[in-house]
Design a protein around this nucleic acid. Structure first.
Lengths: 341, 341
DNA sequence: CTGAAAGCGCTTACAG
DNA sequence: CTGAAAGCGCTTACAG
């Protein structure tokens, strides 16, 4: 046993060289054949693929990443995992990316731009293949980190007029406007807006609510009840009670999210109020259970899974170096009128 | 410019060599200092760390993985992301692992052992640092893949008597028994068990239910309603209706999961049945909203976040080559009696 | 306690 | 269309 053999740190793994040897070609040719790079004789491609198959060859992602300076990682930065909305997005991103050989990575920002910036630093150091971030509200440093990295990035859940920026979502403001218009059309006189968390998308819905009421000449800031606390069913109930106590005359409530609305609906029931007779209740997002409430909840159905899939497809194109058909994709929303309004 | 310079594929990245040069040591020493390996002079460690800090050095994970044959990836294989249970586990695993430099990877099996086996093949090829899997129900091939890989693995959500196997969870069967015992103690005469999905953990709860009723001499297979459909609030309502139609005399229903129970509760209300007066309803897992129902739902609180954290800590120990204090950690459960029973 | 050499398994850039 | 050489950025194994 000579010195070089003693020194070998063999992992026993089947490598590209093994495949190349078996196919009777050079490792480079094997590499090209396996990656489907054009410019390799059809016959060789087949021979290499057969050899790889027979040997059970699996490429080493670390070696590939190191040599090519391109990984298969795609960090997905969302505010929370406890909000089903973002789980749906993450799930469909993962489902779209995984079969293409990319790996979606969890990133939770807790609605905190500083935390997001820190995550971005960490993830960008890993040379990700692409990046998915929620909305446009971030630190200037974060924006520059993304731009400087040159990593393709798609923004989720919001629309923006900025050119050269990629996004997939829908207009949160229009959705807020649409629900408010529905409530006015139903004849409600004092339509309140109740929100929690107060993240940018929630505030865009608030803006849609305001715009609609202003157009109708009915805007009154006292009809808004905004809480920075995290959204939950319990909080929805508490806010409804506070609203009815402090704003007598309210006959319809637009909650910025379905968990609040569901809690509000149950609280109304607990208080012996008929819905929508004494107070109409509407939500947002059409989360699980909203259609099962008593009465079933009027809400806005938002395209979470579609956003996940479309953004992943857009990113796939960008990662291949292609120009996507559109910079921004508006997937819309659907006013879903049920019995609570 | 000589040939070797022409050929250089520089990425402009700050490398370990840059740090070593700045600190006036060899790259190996710099590597050791940065990784906190003992056996480096205290003074050199400081000099290297300062240099790294000043240059903004970030280690390249791909190079590290390739050289050490150990990655920082930890695939977490769970049945579904649409079940809040597993999102909670995944979230706390991620929260525990990330600060330690490890990356939790999403793996969704859709309750399908074949799909899990396929995922395992893919992930294991990436040389993960560790592995987290749900329960013990998998193909023999999957079991062997895990064993042969030598990758540390912790099993989630169930307990097992097998030695040499690591797990963190609680006894699903005891939990099922406990809830059933509570219902019997309350004096209900015909306690039904209603379940969906019928995954292994659900069936362990069913077994606990059966054991308890047999002990009381009250077991009757007709009191079980099992549906292989995916769990949902809507299904819970449907199953309750079917149960009451086909099994007259049932005065208490133990649903295997809170989403079914919540749906059952709302269906009872829709049917004009008083809960618990005419029919008692109990759930499992204490999911979001169960405490807000009318009446609030009796359920079993399960330690999802604790399971995520404890399993991640156990895995952390295993990945460091340490022997964990215990092979199996039983985190227990908590019978949570509210007004629905 | 420190370092020169080799190697991890792939791909890039060049040449033919 | 194919390949020999070099290199990606780190760590291992050995030597001193």
């Amino acid at each position: 046993m000579n010195k070089s053999e003693t020194r070998r740190r063999s992992s026993g793994r089947i490598t590209l060289s093994d495949v190349a040897k078996a196919a009777g070609v050079s490792p480079i040719t094997a590499s090209r054949a396996l990656r489907g790079e054009r410019g390799v004789a059809q016959e060789l491609v087949q021979r290499v693929k057969d050899a790889a198959q027979q040997l059970g060859y699996v490429p080493d992602p670390a070696a590939r990443t190191l040599a090519s300076q391109r990984s298969v990682q795609v960090p997905v930065l969302v505010p929370l995992l406890s909000n089903a909305l973002f789980v749906d997005v993450l799930e469909s991103v993962h489902r779209t990316l995984f079969p293409e050989g990319y790996q979606a990575l969890i990133g939770v920002t807790h609605y905190d731009p500083q935390e997001e910036e820190q995550l971005l630093r960490t993830y960008l150091a890993h040379r990700p293949a692409g990046l998915l971030v929620t909305g446009f509200d971030r630190t200037e440093a974060a924006r520059q980190l993304i731009a400087a990295s040159g990593v393709p990035c798609v923004h989720l859940m919001e629309m923006t007029p900025a050119p050269g920026v990629f996004c997939v979502g829908f207009s949160q403001q229009d959705a807020g406007h649409s629900m408010t218009a529905h409530l006015l059309a139903r004849g409600y006189q004092n339509v309140a807006f109740v929100a929690a968390q107060l993240d940018p998308r929630t505030m865009q819905r608030a803006e849609g609510y305001r715009r609609c009421l202003r157009e109708a000449g009915r805007y009154d800031p006292k009809l808004e009840l905004l809480s920075p606390q995290p959204s939950s069913m319990r909080l929805g109930g508490e806010l409804l009670e506070e609203l009815l106590r402090t704003r007598p005359g309210v006959d319809a409530v637009f909650f910025c999210n379905d968990d609040l609305a569901q809690g509000g609906l149950l609280a109304a029931q607990r208080l012996g109020l008929s819905v929508p007779g004494q107070v109409a209740i509407a939500g947002f997002n059409d989360l699980a259970g909203s259609d099962q409430m008593l009465p079933p909840l009027t809400t806005v159905r938002t395209p979470r899974s579609a956003v996940g899939e479309a953004s992943a497809r857009m990113l796939l194109a960008l990662m291949r170096g292609e120009e996507p058909a559109h910079n921004s994709v508006d997937l819309g929303f659907e006013l879903t009128v049920r019995e609570s309004t």
